Computed example of a mutant assay.
Amino acid sequence: MLNGISISLPIFAYHTMSLANQTSTDEFVILGLLNLPGPHPPFFIIFLLIFLVTVTGNFIIMAVVGLDLALHTPMYFFLVNLSFLEIWYMTTIVPKLLANFLMKSTTMSFAGCMTQLFFFVTFGATECYLLLVMAYDRYLAICKPLYYTSLMDTRMCLQLVTSSWITGGLTGLMPVLLISQLEFCGSRVVNHFFCDIPPLLELSCSDTYPTEISIFVLSLVVLFCSFLLTMVSYFFIVISILRIQSSNGRSKAFSTCGSHLTVVLIYYGTMMFMYVRPRSGYSSDLNKYVSVFYTVVTPGLNPVIYSLRNKEVKLSLKKVLRRFLAP
């Protein structure tokens, strides 16, 4: 085992140096998920299937909610926005990952790298805000049922979703503006499967300390505040559920909120591990594997959690299928 490691490390180092020598001054080399030379068709097939299933699942949720008037409620309106977001979130990252499985590495221009980084941060931050909005919606529905209809009307829903998208876009601008000002005068081999913040900071030959602190504070504010407010909402939700006399009522309420809470814990757990910590805690290989959770796994879980475990969505899907398949 030790001999295998000692042999593979020089091969990886040689492979990285050869890639660096072939790189244009305006291009980055995206090394990929696996630090091994050569194509990897099995991984390509696995991640391609995950990508197709996830995109299809989210499209199905959007279609079913759009076609069934019974699901035209605030909760499902927010769910449609989350599904729409997940499709673009994965499309920003996964195609480059798939290309890396078929080739030793892929190149990306500086402008392309900054564009990918912008959309990645924008979609990631917007997901935080949408998850918070969904938690607030469940809080009003369970804790303030008499006021829910008047408080969560169409105008409020549109304002909350629009604010989430706009704030997400503004959040995505800051890291791009900061990192685009750095100099990259040495190796441009990005030890990752997309243009993420930690590997780009590692490659810069500028003083990255002000940039690191600024991005750390931004990540801390966005992730911690969103997560804290989401957990506060669920604290009051759980208290209200426990007061329900009917066991069926408690079960239904826990089922509705449990799905959302599962996604929240997985998503925030991995995101905080990645971005709310000092650079000394960075480990390139570990970062790549953790990144798979919030770029591939979590978007793939959403259709399963929100549809296969949701009776209303399953009933609506059956109605829609009967409508289209009926002679």
Rank of each mutant, 00 (worst) to 15 (best):
I7R: 15
L9W: 15
I11R: 15
T16S: 05
M17Y: 11
L33K: 01
G38P: 07
I45H: 09
I45F: 06
F47Q: 01
I50F: 15
T56Q: 13
I60F: 15
A63C: 04
L67G: 08
F78V: 00
N81W: 13
I87Y: 09
I87S: 07
Y89N: 11
T91W: 09
T92G: 01
V94D: 01
L97R: 01
N100V: 00
F101G: 00
L102M: 09
L102G: 00
K104Q: 13
M108I: 05
G112N: 09
G112P: 02
T115P: 02
Q116K: 02
L117N: 04
F123Q: 05
F123R: 06
M134P: 05
A135V: 00
A135R: 10
D137F: 05
R138E: 08
R138G: 02
R138C: 03
Y139H: 10
A141G: 07
C143S: 02
L146S: 06
T149Y: 12
S150G: 07
S150F: 10
L151Q: 12
V161I: 14
S163P: 06
I166N: 12
L170Q: 06
L170D: 03
L170A: 07
L178T: 00
L182S: 01
F184W: 06
I197F: 13
Y209F: 09
Y209W: 13
Y209S: 10
I215W: 09
F216L: 14
L220F: 15
S226D: 03
T230G: 10
M231D: 05
F235Y: 14
V238T: 03
L242G: 13
L242F: 15
R243W: 14
S246H: 10
S247K: 14
N248D: 14
N248Q: 14
R250N: 00
R250Q: 15
A253K: 05
A253N: 03
F254K: 07
T256P: 08
T262F: 14
Y267N: 08
G269E: 04
M271K: 13
F273D: 01
F273S: 01
G281E: 12
Y282P: 06
S283A: 15
V290I: 09
V292S: 02
V292G: 07
F293A: 13
T295Y: 05
V297C: 03
T298H: 07
T298V: 08
S307H: 09
L308I: 03
R309C: 12
E312C: 03
K314W: 15
S316P: 09
S316L: 04
S316E: 06
V320G: 04
P327N: 14
